[in-house]
């Protein structure tokens, strides 16, 4: 699965999404490199979640195509993993952590087939990777927010994908979970997997990601963090709102000027 060389993990052409009349995302053209951790950054309502949903065909698009490793998205579903926002499901659902992770196997199982022993073992291994093996039979409403997020990550791991989409995995999680997620992201990167993460915390962008997509209704800029994550580009993305971020602006300013001096 991993040796589909020559083709980029994700290629998006002319994607436009519109709710009602107004376009939420306009004319997105994007090509994403393999084996990178990619942050999708932008202000609230910029269409970050919309973008990863539209790419996966989860919401209707007005125009545009997405290709995964050179083939249309619909033919490559098995090589794509997805971590939706934690709030998108009812956590009082009668199921335990292991069963949720097992859902990640459903794509490979296909219609009518039930998960078997091997699948359960695989799911358990995925739970182990996010440090949740002890909670396998815990009812999901009894997990903390961070633990729920880790269950979602384990479910995505169980998909054994090459390309991952994660919708705000860092939102409202505890420090332990944040560490577990970063560790996991780096493991995925080592395996030459590509991960796109919707992220809202500007402070941690250059620490977590190699690549960044700045988004505000359209793609403002996309590329390696060092080149793209500059005060100028952030200004274009956030506009007046950036002032609110006070110290962060200073930080990025200092850093970019420092780097400019060094080179």
């Amino acid at each position: 699965m991993s040796s589909q060389t020559g083709a980029v993990p994700l290629l998006v052409r002319d994607m436009t999404v519109a709710y009602q009349k107004k376009p939420v995302l306009r004319n997105v053209n994007l090509s994403v490199p393999e084996g990178k951790l990619i942050g999708i950054i932008g202000p609230n309502g910029a269409g970050k979640s919309t973008f990863i949903k539209a790419v996966q065909g989860l919401i209707p698009t007005a125009s545009g195509t997405a290709e995964v490793y050179g083939k249309p998205f619909s033919q490559q579903r098995r090589s794509v993993g997805y971590v939706p926002q934690r709030e998108s499901v009812d956590w009082d659902f009668p199921t335990d952590a292991l069963d949720v992770v097992l859902m990640g196997r459903y794509g490979r199982l296909g219609w009518f087939r039930r998960p078997g022993k091997a699948d359960r073992q695989f799911a358990l291994d995925c739970l182990k990777k996010v440090g949740m093996a002890d909670y396998a039979d815990r009812q999901i409403s009894q997990l903390s927010g961070g633990q729920q997020q880790r269950v979602f990550l384990a479910r995505a791991l169980a998909q054994e994908a090459q390309l991952y989409f994660m919708d705000e995995p860092f939102a409202g999680v505890d420090a332990a979970t944040e560490r577990a997620i970063i560790q996991l992201l780096n493991d995925l990167k080592k395996q030459q997997k590509t991960v796109l993460v919707v992220h809202h915390d500007l402070q941690t962008v250059d620490e977590y990601f190699d690549w960044v997509i700045l988004l505000n209704r359209r793609v403002i800029a996309a590329g390696p963090v060092k080149e793209i994550f500059t005060a100028e580009n952030l200004q274009k993305t956030y506009g007046g709102r950036l002032q609110v971020l006070g110290t962060q602006v200073l930080l990025t300013n200092d850093k970019t000027s420092g780097e400019a001096d060094a080179t």
Binding site: G57, L58, R77, P84, M103, W111, F112
Partner: peptide, 22 residues
């Protein structure tokens, strides 16, 4: 009984299910 797995997915997380291709 036959569609138990699919209906579970539908009731718990339809967005994820769509992502899986169902």
């Amino acid at each position: 009984a036959i569609l138990f797995k699919e209906f579970t997915l539908l009731s718990f997380d339809p967005g994820f299910g769509r992502g899986l291709g169902y």
